[in-house]
Simulated assay, not measured.
Amino acid sequence: MIDLDDISGYERLDPSGLNRRLHDLPAQCDQAWREAKNTDIPDGWRQCTEVIVAGMGGSAIAGNLAADLIDPLSGTSIRVVRDFSIPGISANSRQLVVACSFSGETEETISMFNHAQSVGVSMVAIVGGGTMSRLATNAGIPIMTVDAPGEPRSAVGCNLMLLSSLLNSIGAISLTDANVAAAVAAAESMVSQVGVEVPTETNPAKQLAKDLQGGLSVVYGGGSLSGMALRWKSQINENGKSWAFAEVLPELFHNSVESFPASPEIKQRTTALLLRPHQTTPELGKRYDVIAETLNGFGIKNRTFTGVSGGGLAQSLAMVVLGDHVTYYMGLLNENNPSETPSIDLSKKRLSGQDRSF
């Protein structure tokens, strides 16, 4: 098994330097926030009551994270759609569709883009180039450019900050430059605690990766960390090359808890990861307490990770950094290149008819 404190292992299994991209996420966020200010926002968008983020995979997750930044009393809601079409949209509505694609070639996202355009709903594209960028340009649809190296999931900081700037401009959320600076500082602080140069004995991300190796991870999130559960789950899949599932509080009390007594052979290999906001309502806080007690009562391993103090964006960015490093180390421990996604690539070839080996 790889020694996470031996740099030669990183050079062998991570030739593209994903660890450097993880390290640079705070700077990526700062740059994207600054560049987003150059986007002209039509006045009419400030009256929208629903923002629909259309995308897939690493490009869509920013929508879930941004939704967690919305004040419950806000007059604007966020909906994330991962599909071929977008239900419930109409022309002359107060809706705004944000089509997100890192490559600009994602089949499902292009399909949703075309659907939204045919309906005549207000649109903006957050895209790195490719076909969707050309379609948006030709249609006169505003573009916010994703400028980040590597794989789509590594551009989460750029995507989130572009989307947050847009939401801030239309009044859906409230962010200041000072808020963003504090959030970037929180992310930098987390990098300093979990980066590759920090030895395992003082590195919580390396320690957790070792604990999770070879097992099943179930990620629980609620409140302002609801979307974060899905981010951690997908990163355990993609970076860590491991099985994981995500659940949301309080919903899991109405179904998932019923499985806790069953299947001892699964329970002994399962770890529940509770992502708890720094501040919760009394109702949600009680449910975090009770779910931990319930897991303990049934002998299911569990760990709680509480968000950092400060605003919602600071909590989100710091938790992204922690989860990304944990899953990166999981991939290395599994003797895999954490950047590559061969099974996703194979699936895309089969869907396109290029591979008929099955």
Rank of each mutant, 00 (worst) to 15 (best):
M1R: 11
S8L: 12
E11A: 13
S16E: 15
N19R: 13
R21C: 08
L22A: 08
L22E: 08
D24H: 11
L25Q: 13
L25W: 01
Q28H: 10
Q28L: 07
Q28A: 12
Q28Y: 04
D30Q: 14
Q31K: 14
R34H: 06
R34D: 06
E50M: 05
G55L: 05
A66F: 12
L69C: 08
D71A: 09
T76N: 06
S77E: 14
R79H: 06
R82Q: 14
R82F: 00
D83Q: 10
S85C: 05
R94I: 01
A99P: 05
F102P: 02
F102M: 04
S103K: 05
T106P: 07
I110K: 11
S111F: 12
M112I: 09
F113A: 11
N114H: 07
S118P: 03
V121N: 12
S122K: 14
A125R: 04
A125S: 15
G129D: 09
S133M: 14
R134G: 12
L135W: 11
N138K: 14
G140D: 08
P142D: 10
T145M: 14
D147C: 04
P152C: 05
R153I: 06
R153L: 07
S154C: 12
A155F: 08
N159W: 05
L163E: 07
S165R: 15
S169D: 15
A172V: 04
I173D: 13
I173A: 12
A185P: 03
S189Y: 04
S192H: 03
E197G: 02
T200W: 00
K210F: 01
S217H: 06
V219I: 15
G223H: 02
L225F: 07
M228C: 04
M228A: 02
R231F: 08
Q235F: 02
Q235Y: 02
N237A: 10
N239D: 08
G240N: 10
S242D: 13
W243N: 09
E247G: 00
L249M: 01
L252W: 00
H254W: 06
S256G: 07
V257R: 00
A262L: 14
A262R: 13
P264G: 09
P264I: 07
K267S: 15
R269Y: 05
T270P: 07
Q279P: 03
Q279M: 11
T280S: 12
R287G: 00
D289E: 15
I291L: 01
N296Q: 13
G297P: 03
G299D: 07
R303I: 10
F305S: 09
G312I: 02
G312A: 06
A318R: 10
L332P: 11
L332R: 07
N334C: 06
E335T: 10
N337Y: 07
T341M: 13
S343R: 11
K349R: 15
F358C: 11
